[in-house]
Write a protein that binds this DNA or RNA. Structure first.
Length: 865
DNA sequence: CGGATCGAC
DNA sequence: CTATGTCGATCCG
């Protein structure tokens, strides 16, 4: 039996192939090798529009990589060392927050759709099949995979790879049913389990495990589904066995992993009970039990991963696929061992592009990802490198977060070329109808409508438009989408728009809070600081113009200018009272809304309930009972005191730079901000860090608030941790030293002048803390201090730092700096944050980045958010 | 905000 | 005979 299993599993080339990701060798002779597969695919692909577009996209990625490499060239050893120090601090914090106390399970049904189809149609067993259409396959069975037939491959190409391939059309209804059956089982182990699509789910079985300890054997006993087995016997249990490929044992077709059930169970099986099996109390046993039950119930097999967090669990479930399971023990070292040689591509969230970019840096495995952390932090956005760091440390989410509110909803359709405008419009309407139905199911309304078009050359375009009141009905959505579509049609006129796909999306949903004050009292309206309908009131323009951003006004033009201009016009033409009323009336449906809003305003005036308004411009509370006064105040704010006021705020924010830059920024919103490259950001980092750490905290707090659309003005106390403070202090020292060495910093001279230098300027004698060894250094000159720092660095103290952190030095051998990889920036990691919750801002770079980005937007338009 | 891009399935 | 999907999230400018 044991033997058979082993033979079964090792001769099961499916499993092998899947695990390897590719089938390069050792496969049966009818299998195609990788080269041959690629050749066939290439022949089928070459010359197609699709392929040309793929090439184009590929080149874009290559350009990005090239850009990154250029940026990398500019990175100095010093920068790298500095980054290394910062990150290793962070690593220590992350280590401390590592949470291994949860047991997360990822369940993944094997070749789900294909397996269901095979189960329901015995004729398909043993044959290579795929589910989908000639245009696109959703999945394939393991037999077909030997020919290179994969999910997301068009059927006609699959046919070339495997002429005998049977393609079964999708039948979601059926899969949904099966999926439900599986979920019924899962919910017993974790009522809050998180399904991911029809064939995957995460469970947190921590609690179950605890309870289970006290369970009697009976509660852990499960019976073979004799009925089903009997049926299978008639139907052909052989087929079943074959379906499971490689002769996984007859009935429960499980446990081909190295701790076969049979080894553990004999004593546990109560001799009196035939046809049953008792599972133990360990996590592995629980998962075996789950898989056993799934198979008994659905005749389908699942793979599973057990680990301390979701990311690891997912990667784990991939390891012994199909019909296998794998566990990462809740120990730090076990996690690191698992990751050591794991290709980054296996990590959820790392896709084709990210893989390629990292590969250009010589990074293929997770441990390399760790080794290059300093470099990555200089080349990628903070969100990206933090995510990389989480990955390389094996950190991930330890709870199954309720999927937050959705942020968008969309629908799209591919079809054969449509080029008649009329048809395009009706298609568009259809999409809007579908979408609106879905939206209304969830009771959602959104303010942004996006139209997506793919032309016959596979080039994709999206065009969005944000309107002032949220939409959800077919008519409302279509009204916006129609405009967008019209603009696109016009833009290629007199040629027809030749498209093969159209999609419509709605986003910008109202939050719960917003939904409430959508019930609009003027008080909430003003306090919320939400848009006020200035735009609509500009004479000579139809409202329509404002609903699509295609009117002549430059899209990047100053919001403020528009708003103010409109506002001024209003003031001239309308009494203050009317102004507010008008502001409240929402464009398009103005007549009905207007009446309604007017009534509300009147109500408001007649009531004494709300006597305090927050001015949306200056944020001062206005305790005016009457709207006239309020309007007058707003007018004043907008016309006169605005600039002054804002500058005061700016000063309050305690950033010299802000104040200095405010005016130019105000006049010309297109600050050089956007053009800064990553290296500039370094300068920025140093710069902000060079002010006192107090000011950093304060301004950070402040900016954060500003951005958050909550219009508080109070100053929050600093809440940076001591560690972060410390880091900021260190930051103060390094910029100076780097600025002497690095051309780039010379360019941004103002940085030094405005802040950094004051640490040194008038003091011939300083006591400075060496950022490396932490000892106090009396220095008479920067040069001598820097010399000390150099010595420290060269001593390899960084290594010590790492080792203190007890980072497996085998696994992560961080040779200093010589490994300077370098890349370009721009790569974004788009993975949903799977990171564990971390407290606050602990990284100077992040501090400055936040402050900076908020800073750049610290114009009046901010107040209108 | 708008547009493009990435990744999951 | 042809023929390469749908969705949500994120990030930059």
């Amino acid at each position: 039996m044991d033997n058979m299993k082993k033979v079964g599993s090792s001769s099961c080339s499916d499993g092998f192939l899947l695990r390897m990701g590719l089938n390069d060798n050792k496969a049966g002779m009818q299998d195609l090798d990788k080269e041959k597969i690629n050749k066939i695919i290439m022949e089928a692909t070459k010359g197609s529009k699709f392929y040309e577009n793929e090439l184009k996209k590929d080149q874009q990625v290559n350009q990005r990589i090239e850009k990154m490499m250029q940026l990398k060239e500019k990175i100095t050893t010093q920068q790298l060392l500095k980054a290394q120090l910062q990150i290793d601090r962070l690593v220590m914090e992350l280590e401390q927050s590592r949470n291994l106390s949860n047991t997360i399970v990822h369940i993944d049904m094997d070749a789900f759709y294909a397996a269901v189809e095979m189960r329901d149609n015995p004729e398909l067993k043993e044959k290579p099949i795929a589910v989908g259409s000639m245009s696109m396959l959703s999945t394939s069975n393991y037999h077909a995979r030997r020919f290179g037939v994969r999910a997301a491959m068009p059927g006609f190409i699959a046919k070339k790879l495997c002429p005998h391939l049977t393609i079964v059309p999708l039948n979601f209804e059926k899969y949904g049913k099966v999926s439900k059956e599986v979920r019924e089982i899962l919910t017993e182990y974790d009522p809050n389990f998180m399904p991911m699509g029809l064939d995957e789910a995460y469970l947190n079985i921590t609690e179950h495990l605890e309870e289970r300890l006290n369970w009697s054997e009976d509660k852990r006993r499960f019976f073979y589904n004799t009925e089903s087995t009997a049926k299978k016997d008639k139907d052909g249990i052989n087929k079943s066995a074959k379906f499971n490929e490689g002769g996984y044992s007859s009935s429960p077709v499980l446990f081909e992993d190295n701790t076969p059930l049979t080894d553990e169970l004999p004593e546990q099986i109560a001799p009196s009970v035939e046809n049953s099996v008792v599972f133990g109390t360990s996590a592995e046993e629980v998962v075996k039990e789950i898989r056993f039950r799934i198979e008994q119930k659905t005749q389908l097999t699942a793979s599973a991963g057990i680990a301390p967090n979701t990311m690891l669990a997912k990667m784990c479930s991939d390891r012994n696929k199909p019909n296998g399971q794998c566990r990462i023990a809740p120990e730090r070292q076990a996690v690191l061992d698992f990751l050591k040689d794991l290709p980054i591509r296996k990590v959820p969230g790392i896709g084709k592009v990210t893989e390629k970019m990292l590969k250009a840096l010589g990074i293929v495995t997770c441990s390399e990802l760790y080794q290059q952390r300093a470099l990555l932090s200089l080349l990628f956005s903070e969100a990206s490198w933090r995510h990389f760091l989480d990955i390389s440390l094996g950190l991930g989410s330890t709870r199954l977060e309720k999927d937050g509110e959705r942020k968008s909803m969309s629908t799209e359709r591919t079809f054969s070329e449509i080029n008649r405008a009329e048809e395009q419009y009706s298609l568009c309407r259809e999409l809007c109808r579908d979408l609106s139905q879905e939206l209304q199911k969830e009771g959602l309304k959104g303010k942004t409508v996006t139209l997506k078009l793919k032309n016959v050359n596979f080039e994709v375009k999206t065009r969005a438009s944000t309107v002032l009141s949220s939409v959800s009905t077919e008519e409302e959505i279509f009204a916006v989408a129609k405009e967008l579509l019209g603009t696109e049609i016009d833009s290629v006129a007199p040629h027809p728009l030749r498209i093969r796909l159209m999609g419509v999306r709605v986003s910008g949903f109202l939050s719960e809070e917003e939904k409430k004050y959508q019930q609009k009292t003027i008080t909430n309206f003003l306090k919320s600081g939400k848009e006020i309908g200035f735009l609509r009131l500009q004479p000579g323009k139809s409202n329509q113009d404002y609903f699509t951003k295609n009117s002549e006004s430059s899209p990047r033009g100053s919001f403020f200018d528009k708003k103010r201009a409109a506002r001024q016009l209003n003031s001239e033409n309308l009494s203050p009272n009317e102004t507010v009323e008008k502001q409240l009336s929402h464009g398009r449906k103005s007549s009905s809304n207007f009446v309604e809003e007017t009534r509300k305003v009147t109500d408001l005036q007649n009531s004494n309930v709300c006597t305090i308004f927050t001015c949306p411009v200056c944020f001062e509370e206005q305790s005016n009972n009457n709207l006239e006064e309020l309007n007058r105040h707003i007018d004043e704010c907008l016309n006169g005191s605005l600039v002054k006021d804002t500058m005061e705020i700016s000063k309050n924010l305690n950033s010299r730079e802000n104040t200095l830059n405010f005016l130019p920024q105000f006049k010309n919103e297109k600050v050089d901000e956007c053009q800064r490259n990553k290296t500039d950001q370094l300068a920025e980092t140093d710069h902000s860090a060079s002010t006192s750490d107090n000011s950093i905290s304060n301004s950070t707090e402040k900016f954060t608030q500003m951005g958050s659309a909550k219009l508080h003005r109070e100053r929050e106390p600093s809440n940076l941790s001591d560690i972060a403070r410390n880091m900021c202090m260190k930051q103060c020292l390094f910029p100076k030293r780097i600025s002497q060495d690095d051309d780039h910093f010379k360019k941004t001279k103002y940085t030094e002048e405005t802040s950094s230098s004051r640490f040194f300027e008038d003091k011939e004698e300083n006591v400075l803390i060496c950022p490396v060894c932490n000892s106090e250094q009396k220095t008479t000159s920067l040069v001598s201090f820097n010399r000390h720092v150099d010595v420290c660095l060269n001593k390899g103290l960084i290594q010590e730092l790492t080792e203190k952190n007890d980072f497996s030095s085998k696994t992560y051998n961080m040779e200093n700096s010589n490994r300077v990889g370098g890349l370009s920036r721009g790569q974004q990691c788009t993975n949903p944050s799977q990171g564990t919750k971390r407290s606050g801002l602990t990284n100077p770079q992040s501090v400055s980045k936040k402050a900076k980005s908020s800073n750049s937007k610290c114009t009046i338009e901010m107040f209108f958010r």
